[in-house]
Design a protein around this nucleic acid. Structure first.
Lengths: 221, 221
DNA sequence: CGCCAGATTGACCTACTTCAAGTGCAGTGG
DNA sequence: CCACTGCACTTGAAGTAGGTCAATCTGGCG
């Protein structure tokens, strides 16, 4: 990605343009960007790689709240502290901007506020899909929904839509879907044996029967 | 509530002031306000009563995404269609405003955009708590978390914080927490028998041991 | 080639669901 | 005032999806 550009799932053009002025930063894979409770200094917009947004329980249980992709916005809060954690899943490139600078701009430009509100509502909509999965779907349907979610994100990035690159581990997927690694693995095996998906080298996944996969995810045909 | 006024969990003053200009409307209990997919014509701000925000699966499974309280904002989208459903739980009074009017104002006033973005981030934060509950907590901890959530909302409305009014049925709570009615009922029974809560007339709940209830919810002490 | 972390598979266990009776209480009518 | 009624809630017993624990497999890499 040369400059931040549409179309994205969740970041409108006005916000992306902002970041084009910002500083470019990079992080290695597995790097903790911030923890819940940390002061917010900079906000980011991903240009390459993946980040996970997390929340941890008292006893160390990890819930992944979102997998972020290039173009996604990250780390903005209206409180002075982060209310989620974040870490890189792969090596990451991002634009950064100071939070105070962003707040200044937001206060002075109505278009940015609208863009922000719009973006927030797209993010919220995604999280509501996750709530529905966690509350009402069985393990196979959750995994199928997750794969379709991945597909949509990849597609929006202009990559293929049949062959999925899966940059996260089974444990990451489990922590996202409220399952265990083993159950995720078994669900993958089921989807393979019934022909919805096919394994490809490097852990990639081929969507062999989209219709059946959508049915498995309990989505409208 | 004479005029919409702070402090609220999720609606900043600038947004509440807007609605003071709007029309006052009322609905009976159990009224469908809109369905997922409906055109968005008006947006609302509750002044009295409770509303549930829902999403339904292909086979009719209901997931409650939020219980709304006086002061809460309802029905705004940036797409022309609703992406959730909503229905009243109790008789409801609300201010209403046309979506197009709100969009106009948003485009012209930077403060409103900020207020909106701020509100969205508070809403998102609440939904993330729900995701954590659904993904990582057992039934007893989910119900305990839910009661504490209710308590917080009541407290913010200036009502007492020890005795909770519970306007929703066990089925509603189950549809919110990703459980069955029976499991919710059993969790209530457990919390009663271990002394965290005590039943009161009209289905109200007394929080008899807040510390123990927080522990049961797996929250920091 | 051998190592090792991630993934898979198997066997058993438990928390929650399902199905099926009861119970209690708010509202209604005698 | 009190019995009747209906709906929400509770409780019990049995079934099951997913968790737990443990062994094995796989493929990327030195």
């Amino acid at each position: 990605m040369a400059t931040p550009s549409a179309p994205q799932l969740s970041t409108p053009k006005a916000v992306l343009d902002l970041f084009a002025q910002g500083k470019k930063v990079s992080f290695p894979a597995g790097r903790l960007l911030f923890r819940e409770g940390d002061d917010v200094s900079d906000v980011f917009c991903l240009s390459e790689g993946n980040v996970v947004v997390t929340r941890f329980g008292e006893n160390g249980e990890r819930q992944i709240l979102a997998f972020l992709f290039p173009g996604d916005f990250l780390g903005m809060t209206f409180t002075p502290h982060h209310n989620t954690g974040a870490e890189t899943l792969t090596p990451v490139m991002a634009w950064s901007l100071s939070r105070s600078r962003l707040l200044e701009l937001l206060a002075s430009r109505a278009d940015l506020g609208v863009a922000f509100a719009h973006m927030s509502s797209l993010i919220l909509n995604n999280v509501l899909d996750l709530v529905f999965s966690l509350g009402r779907k069985n393990s196979k349907a959750r995994v199928a929904s997750f794969l379709l979610h991945l597909q949509r994100r990849q597609e929006l990035l202009g990559l293929g839509s049949k062959r999925l690159h899966v940059p996260m581990t089974r444990q990451d997927i489990a922590d996202f879907l409220g399952l265990t690694m083993e159950t995720v693995s078994r669900s993958f095996s089921q989807l393979k044996s019934t022909g919805e998906i096919k394994p490809e080298p490097h852990g990639d996944i081929l969507i062999a029967d989209l219709k059946a996969l959508r049915a498995a995810a309990e989505l409208a045909p």
